[in-house]
């Protein structure tokens, strides 16, 4: 699969929603912990060598699971292979919680569900569809039916 790498590189240079130097262990690297600059932008998590401008890699955060690991750490795994884990080590428990919370909300699928939830709640309170007023009530991505429980 080809993808627009240059554009993705441009995205990695955008202001981060969250960024920090964390310890990182890639799935197959066993116990080798590398210090990486980790940067959350939109629904992508970029990781960099601390002295390089270009990221080593990017993780698309759709259909992922964020799990607490021991000693101020967390891991990210993906639905297609939950055994394959990207592990991260934080400086403190607090930082770890901050990252886990941010990552769990960093997917388009989560945004979509939030939107449908808010739309529903506003309709309950006001009796009006807020998206109708914004002129986007017909869009497929905003439909209640797109929400699979």
């Amino acid at each position: 699969m080809r993808y627009n790498e240059k554009e993705l590189l441009a995205l990695s240079r955008q202001p981060a929603d969250l960024a920090a130097e964390l310890g990182m262990r890639a799935p197959k690297k066993g116990n080798v912990v590398k210090r990486r600059l980790v940067k959350l932008v939109a629904n992508f998590l970029f990781y960099f060598r601390t002295d390089e401008a270009e990221p080593i890699g990017a993780l698309l955060l759709e259909h992922c699971r964020v799990t607490k690991e021991e000693s101020s750490g967390f891991s990210i795994s993906f639905l297609e292979d939950t055994e394959r884990k990207y592990r991260f080590e934080c400086w403190s428990e607090e930082q770890c919680q901050e990252w886990m919370a941010a990552l769990r909300r960093a997917s388009y699928e989560f945004m979509r569900r939030s939107l449908v939830f808010y739309r529903n709640e506003i309709q309950k309170v006001t009796g009006k569809d807020p998206l109708e007023q914004l002129g986007i009530s017909e869009e497929a991505r905003f439909q209640l039916s797109s929400l699979k429980a």
Partner: peptide
Amino acid sequence: MKLNERSVTHYALSDSPADHT
């Protein structure tokens, strides 16, 4: 730059709603 392509492909083929086709 690496990308978690297998997961991306899995997401592409999953039954999560498509916004346009």
